[in-house]
Structure formats: structure tokens, C-alpha cells
Amino acid sequence: MLAYLVRRIIFGAAVLVGTSVITFTIAFVVPADPAVAMAGAKADPQTLASIRIEMGLDQPLYVQYARYFDRAIHGDLGRSYIRRESVTRLIADRFPATAVLAGAAMALSLMLGIAMGALAAAYRGRAADNILLVISLALVSIPVFWLGTMLLIAVAAAIRSFPLGGYSGATSLILPTLTLALGSAGYYSRVLHTSLCDAFDQDYVRTARGKGLSRVRVMLKHAMANALLPLVTLAGLDLAGLLSGVVLTETVFNWPGIGRLAAEAIFNLDIPVIMGTVLFSALLIVVVNLLVDLLYAWLDPRIRLAETG
């Protein structure tokens, strides 16, 4: 178990180093001069030169990267060109809003996905199965930002006082959560459906059926236990996709989170913020997947034993 843990942590660290190389490369190919971005277009050559030296832009590339890396592991991601604030600070300020939205969407999509997947599997091969299949394919085909806009249109027409944007209590969370969750729900329902149907053909389910247990009972008690774990792992892996949706959802609903911070930074070519948000997303994904893996190993002894044996 310990060896497994150590290996996972080393891998996670390697992913973050790799990400820092990627973000650094992106920042390097940008045609804009960071010194000009920092000082403004009207700065005189002397000011620019001193900013370049101060920022280390006169150093060789690997020295610049080493500096960037050293600062990043100490939590310093540089300063925003536009807002003149520390990037770490900006991310820390925006993170709670994103965490609330992503957490709520993750929970809702898993609940909806499990319900739809289980229902479809229970009616395998019948009309309800096919209808649920088409619904889930439709859900994964809806563009997130359009779904958000359509919800805005519908709610704006129906309820005058409903919060249509921004972050103001529980009601303001409803539309963005729905927007973000529905696509993933369609995806999870397909995955659960497949693993439940696989389980139905296995001996332990046949035995349980043979004992005279009802179809529904067998599904909930026996097949579900084995089908749910992979789904949780998948949800962890899917976090990268969820964060992509977060960028769009936050843009549509004016949600003050990291996704909108990233979108604004990209719009303004605010390189330190772009690098910071990409790096922070990778950190988030690595940490969440590490936790999911540990949970999985703890819940399923076969993994623990296989890894140590």
C-alpha cells in the first residue's frame, strides 16, 4: 500500500513538472513582449530594459524556467499584467466559487447518471432502454454554453426575479449546476449501463438470480456494488472535462470562478494568469485523482493485494 502511495505521488509530481514545462513553452511562444505588457506600450527603452533585467528576461531560457519553477513550488505564480495582483491570490479568491459549482455539478451528474443508467439496465433490451439511450446521447451532444443560454432564456421568460448571473446564494447556483451537470450525466449513465449489463452476465449475478432474488434486488445489491466503483474513478478522470465545461458555464453565467478568470486572461493575453490557471487545474486534477485512487484501493482489496504482491 505504501509503495503504491509513493508511486502515485511521484507520478503526480511528474505530471505537474510536465505541465509547468508546457505552460512555460506556451508563454515563451507568445509574440507579445512581457516587459511591454508589464510597463505599458508607452514605456521608454530604459524602463523596459530595467524591467527585463528585473524579470530575468535577459537570462538564458533554462535559467528562466528554473526561476519560474522555483517560484511556482513556493506558491508564487507571478503577477497579473492586467490586474497587477499576485496570480496565487487571484486564484485563491476565485477558487471557492468554482469549487462550489464543480462540486454541485459533479454530485448532480453522478446522481442523474446513476439513476438513468440503472433504469436503462433494469429494462435492458426494451423500449425504455432505447429511449434512455437516445436521451443520454442527446445530453452528451448539447453544447454546454448553448444549454446555459437556453436555460437563461427559459427562466428569464418564466420567473422575473430569478438570479440570472453572478454568485449570490443557493438559487444562483441552480442554473449553472444544471448546465454543467447534464452532459456528464448522459455520459455516466452510458458507462453505468454498460458495466451493469456486463455484471448481469456474470456468475455471481446468475447465482443470486438462481436463489430466487428479484431482478431489481440483484441489481441494487450485487451488480451495483461492482459497477459503481469504476464510475467514481471515471468521474475523477473526467475532472479535466468538467473543468473545460466550467470555463464555458462561468462565462455564460458571469460566475466569479477560476474558469472566467482563465477566459478573461486568455482574452487579454495575461500570460502569468493563463499559466497559473492551467497549472492550478493540473494540480487540482492530480490531487483529486490521487484521492480517488486511494479511496479505490482502500475499498477494493484486489488492487491493494495486486500492487504489493
Binding site: S281, I285, V286
Partner: peptide
Amino acid sequence: SLPPLLLAMA
């Protein structure tokens, strides 16, 4: 481990 949309946008 990288959000595809964020990376594509950048």
C-alpha cells in the same frame, strides 16, 4: 491531466 478547452484556448 490538463483541461482540453483551457489548453486549446491558451
